[in-house]
Every structure is written in C-alpha cells, then in structure tokens.
C-alpha cells in the first residue's frame, strides 16, 4: 500500500517559450510583440520515492473549481506538465490521484509570477526525530501504567 502521495513541485516557473516578432516591412518602425507562456510541471511520487506513473491528473481553473479544465495522465517518471491559460489568473488547482492515493497542489498563475506548491515535507532527520518522540510517548505510557501499585 502506498503511503500518501506527495508532490514535489519540481518547478513551476515560467519557460519563456515564444518570442513572437513581427516586423512590418513598410516603414522604419519596428514592433516587437512578445508573449510569455507559463508551463507548469509537476512531479508526483509516493513518499516511498516511487513515481506515480500513470496517475490521473485533473487541472482546475481558478474560476471553476468543479469542472476540470484539463485532464491527463502522469508519465512513467510521475511528471505532468501543462500550460495554464494566463488570461485566467489566480490559483490553479492540480489534483493527482491513483488507486485512492493522491494529493492536491495549488499553483498561482498571473499577477505576480511567483508560484507556490507544497514543500517537499520534512527532512529525514526531522521525521526520525518526530517518530522517536511518538514512540517515546508510547513507551512512557507503558511504563506509567506498568508501575507497581502501592
């Protein structure tokens, strides 16, 4: 059974894809139009590290959180990328799901160019420390209840 899926938002920053130049021939004036397309790439993996190959992805636009704007499937490395519609700025929602496991990430698009995603969680050392604390709590409970009755 897989542990909870965790997303590492690999990178959701923009790749400037198209630089569209238009140069009218007739005058000396030059006009340069350019558009920047934002491409979001997510990488989905179980927290055992195994990529969620073939997981289903649904992308929701900020103004319509109920109908998927795009659906797709992760590749063998658990990656999925899409280009959100920059004319609909706000927080885009990406859900990944496979066999009852999955997670949701929120990616802000437009306005400021920053993106946000869930951090990749705790460092291994933190996890071990937290686990040790819980285990010690249990051991302490056991010791308390097993002390000799006076």
């Amino acid at each position: 059974m897989h542990t909870k899926a965790k997303f590492i938002i690999g990178l959701a920053t923009l790749l400037a894809l198209h630089l569209m130049l238009s140069m009218p021939i007739h005058a000396h004036g030059v006009r340069i139009h350019h558009t920047v397309d934002v491409v979001v790439e997510i990488t989905a993996a179980y927290d055992s590290g195994e990529p969620m190959a073939g997981a289903q992805v649904s992308v929701y636009a900020p103004d319509d959180p109920s109908t998927p704007w795009l659906t797709g499937v992760c590749d063998d490395e658990g990656r999925f990328s899409f280009a959100p519609d920059v004319s609909r700025p706000g927080t885009w929602t990406v859900r990944v799901r496979q066999a009852g496991h999955g997670d949701i990430v929120y990616i802000s698009v437009g306005g400021s160019s920053d993106t946000s995603g869930r951090a990749s969680g705790y460092a291994p050392l933190q996890i071990v420390l937290m686990a040790v604390c819980v285990v010690w709590g249990s051991v302490g409970t056991a010791l308390y209840f097993s002390r000799r009755r006076r």
Binding site: M1, H2, T3, Y46, S48, E50, A131, V134, V135, S138, V139, T141, A142, L143, F145, S146
Partner: peptide
C-alpha cells in the same frame, strides 16, 4: 494498557516498513 501502548508505537512505525511488490510497494 502498557501492552496496548507499545503496540500502538509498533503500528505507528510499521507503515514505514515498505515491502517492494513489483510494480508497487506496500507497507
């Protein structure tokens, strides 16, 4: 209660013990 407390800890930790069963892995 002591027995239950110790086995709660075992249950808590057990979900990290992954057993690879290709193509998936279970715990």
């Amino acid at each position: 209660v002591p027995k239950a407390a110790l086995l709660t800890a075992a249950f808590f930790v057990a979900s990290w013990i992954h057993i690879p069963v290709p193509p998936a892995s279970v715990h």
